[in-house]
Amino acid sequence: MPLPDAVSSGIDTLLDRTVAPGFTKVGSAVRRRLPTWPADPAPGALVGRTGLVTGASSGLGTATAEGLARLGARVVLVVRDAGKGAATARELERAVPGAQVSVATCDGSDLDDVRRFAEQLDVDGVERVDVLVHNAGAMPPQRTESAQGHEQTMALHVLGPVLMTDLLSPRMTGGRVVLVTSGGMYGQRLRADDPEYLQGEYSPTTAYARSKRAQVELLPVLLRRWSNKRIRVDATHPGWADTPGLDSSLPAFRRLTRPFLRDAEDGADTTVWLAGADPEETGRLWHDRRPRPTHLLPTTRTGDVERELMWEWVIKQTALSPS
């Protein structure tokens, strides 16, 4: 006898609030067996559409690109290393017969390179973008600056994605933007007073989580900015997934939790699902195909004033029009 929906939803919520089981492969395995688990996208849901995935040469990015390709999308792998991107493209073409995969280079933390990339898409013949997944991420072990002198995680996770989306927005009418964030952001509040992390002793995990918190807090602002294009803007967090980035950034955590870590496909599932199922609900943080709260602690809650201050900083650094 199937569980009543109320019980199923209660189990789902309990997994989410207790974090550890919900973020692991145990959480997704349990949720997939619940009657409230949303249906998969229809086969061929993205045929005739184009998806761009940043950081697509490994881990979650490669899994996301493969998921979009399996739904029929033409996929552009946006990578820093053209050689790695070409190797990934060949792997995807073997894994998904008939897949349309191309490679474009861009350093998402370098705002000048983001501008070049957006212009180059015209040359590459990408007239429309239906799905834009900002997956590229990094956690430098010490404070590092981008080409324009911005703290690296904030440049790569916030400034670059905002600028790229804004430049591509004319060809994204009715499309969907997904920011791949992290559950680590639950432990940090928005720091509009110190976006460059110039105060206090630098911590790579804190910097990473702060930038991911900024992604989530800016969702309503970004949704409003691109509303005239009917662009949906969401964030997903993959839970605890076993990726090359985790191994290089948090090796001790990976050793302790490896038996419970999700694989890359599981971590990318909700991002692919959002693109293929294309739910009307937007402006939300999603995990395991459900909208999730953006705060688990009262100390991380953000007011409108602080959010607008962060947005003003983003506008200033990217030189975008404030309107």
Rank of each mutant, 00 (worst) to 15 (best):
A192G: 06
W286F: 15
R292W: 02
T153H: 10
V114M: 06
P293R: 14
G200E: 08
Y208D: 12
S9H: 08
L34A: 01
A42Q: 14
A29C: 06
V19D: 00
D110S: 10
D81N: 12
K25C: 03
G108V: 10
V103M: 10
E151G: 10
T300W: 15
D234S: 10
P170Q: 07
E201M: 09
D130N: 12
P97H: 06
A264Q: 06
A252P: 03
V180G: 04
Q142D: 12
A6E: 15
G72T: 06
K84Q: 13
Y202G: 13
T36Q: 01
P251A: 05
A155N: 10
A87P: 01
T271A: 07
K316P: 04
F117Q: 10
R80W: 15
R17G: 00
T173M: 14
W313P: 01
V96F: 03
L92A: 06
D110W: 11
R143Q: 11
A63T: 03
R171S: 14
A268M: 07
V7M: 11
Y197W: 07
G59T: 09
I231A: 01
P238D: 08
D193T: 12
C106S: 11
W286L: 13
T181I: 01
T300D: 12
R301D: 00
S102M: 11
R115Y: 15
F253V: 05
H287L: 04
G22K: 09
T36Y: 02
V178C: 06
